[in-house]
Simulated assay, not measured.
Amino acid sequence: MTDSISKVIKKISRMRVHHSEDDIRAAMRQILEGGFPDRNRDVNTGRHRGSGGSKRGKPLSDGVSRAVLELEGSDPDKFKMLSSFDRLLRKGDVLKDMRSLREFGQSIDKSFEPGKARKEAVPRLVQLLADMPMDRLATVVESALDKERRRADTDDDYQALANFLMAKRSK
């Protein structure tokens, strides 16, 4: 064993005192899948440090919710579907704001409490989805994706109308 490897082992052993084994595994998985995080990028938000930006639909992190990680060995199909949906949620591509997250969660379970921030709401929603049977999960996820597609199509329709009106004015 080289000196470098033994230093890494000692550092990981010290980290086990302050972090759970699941957190360490998730961090290692992220490093192996996506490379080492950019030092100028905030780990929680995915944005560059010091940058402003909109709070609406901001990315949370490149991580995966604990509920998804727990499914990896036991239910690979559910894991695959939920990890993709979790990634879309965290990037802000689906259910872009707190209101839509809250409404979606409460449409599944009236007692759903998303919390105050998006970073609280996404893991809670994913946990709610992870507890569902696969057939219901597929239906619910597809409905969220369809709603997003319809919203995007509506935006395209508005854009087409705006372009038409602008072209009419310039003549």
Rank of each mutant, 00 (worst) to 15 (best):
S4C: 07
N163K: 12
G52I: 03
M15A: 15
L82Y: 07
F79P: 10
S54P: 07
G53P: 01
S100T: 15
E113H: 13
I31C: 08
D3A: 11
G46R: 02
M134A: 10
S170M: 10
I24S: 04
F104N: 01
K55E: 12
R66I: 03
G105K: 07
D97Q: 08
D146T: 13
V64I: 13
D42A: 03
G53M: 08
G92W: 13
A121D: 05
R25C: 04
G92E: 08
L145A: 00
A67F: 09
A167N: 12
G35V: 08
I24R: 02
A117L: 11
G46D: 01
G52R: 05
E70P: 00
A26V: 05
D131V: 03
D86R: 07
K78A: 10
G63T: 00
K55P: 04
D75Y: 09
E33S: 12
D135C: 01
V94N: 01
A67I: 09
D62C: 00
S111K: 11
D93N: 15
L95E: 08
R56P: 01
L71F: 05
R49P: 00
L89G: 09
M1W: 02
M166F: 13
A152R: 13
D93W: 14
R150C: 08
R149S: 10
S107L: 05
R169P: 01
R102N: 13
F36N: 03
F164G: 02
M166S: 14
S20V: 10
F85R: 06
G92K: 14
T139G: 12
L165P: 01
D156N: 12
G63Y: 01
G35C: 06
T154M: 14
D97K: 04
F79V: 03
S83M: 13
L125F: 05
M28E: 14
S61T: 07
M166V: 15
D23A: 15
F112G: 06
H48F: 15
A130W: 14
D22I: 08
R66A: 14
G35H: 11
S100L: 09
L88H: 10
R87V: 06
L71S: 04
S84G: 15
S6D: 08
S61F: 02
Q30T: 00
A162S: 15
K91C: 06
V17F: 04
L128V: 07
Q127V: 02
S143G: 11
I5S: 13
T2W: 02
P133S: 04
T139F: 11
R16W: 00
E72L: 08
N40P: 00
L82K: 06
D156F: 11
S74N: 13
F36S: 11
V94T: 14
S170P: 00
K147D: 08
R150A: 14
L69T: 08
V141P: 03
E148A: 13
M15L: 13
A26H: 09
S51V: 05
E142K: 10
I31A: 11
